[in-house]
Design a protein around this nucleic acid. Structure first.
Lengths: 119, 119
DNA sequence: TGAACATATGAGCAGACGTTCAGATGTTAG
DNA sequence: CTAACATCTGAACGTCTGCTCATATGTTCA
């Protein structure tokens, strides 16, 4: 394989982020890269919800909802509050909403431009 | 399945974002949810690169690099500039960098807190 | 305690994803 | 034109993902 400018590549290596941040970023974005989880976070951005109401809202089974919430919790995107047998889920912090809204801004602006898609 | 507050759920339905924004958001975040693509965008945030140098930088085959760039281009995250036989890729707009950096801020702050993980 | 309830979790499966491999496309130089 | 080159693309393959199903955990109330 041929390369135009190996010295530029060498210089870049020193600037790029390391494996740990890459992996953390990937995990976070991957969590947001699923329609169900996007809808979960959108719903929770309006306030906490118990698992059963969230399941009703999204038209999901209780099990599927719980599995997704578990994943989001492991990534610290949501946190829980127990109230008797119910468990209420909420966004972990304002950072998540910011990230979410920034993504929305991108897709809205992107949709405004003429677009080509994959086959 | 039982539900605590169906009326709250009904009220929420009117506020949630629709399917088109959900899908667009999902697509965008999913594109960022892969370590290879995270590294591609990180690299391109420092300036445009041709496919071969990008492949060298990331230790990927030319084909794998091209496939990923194609995906990123379809999502309007990167754009191309042809110069002879070479094709240079660059981030499509500043929005992408913002989204990327906001994600970084989250994972850095999140890493600072004590964390629990999945099994 | 025991029954009912709300949620959590493990196994299994169909579909999606990222890579490699082989070959196509489009460009430059002779 | 042909040869060399840089990139693109389709097919195929192993892996990962998100769901369902069945069951476990932990709570409340009689």
């Amino acid at each position: 394989m041929f390369h135009i400018d190996p010295s530029k590549v060498a210089r870049l290596r020193a600037v790029l982020i390391g494996q740990a941040p890459v992996d953390a970023l990937t995990e976070t974005f991957r969590a947001l890269g699923d329609p169900t989880r996007v809808r979960v976070l959108d719903a929770l951005s309006h306030g906490e919800l118990c698992v059963c109401d969230l399941a009703l809202l999204l038209g999901l089974s209780q099990s599927a909802t719980s599995h997704q919430l578990r994943l989001l919790r492991a990534l610290r995107l949501v946190r829980t509050r127990r109230a008797g047998r119910m468990v209420y889920y909420a966004l972990d912090d304002r950072h998540i909403v910011t990230l979410f809204r920034q993504g929305l801004r991108h897709v809205e602006e992107s949709a405004a431009r003429p677009g080509r898609r994959l086959a």
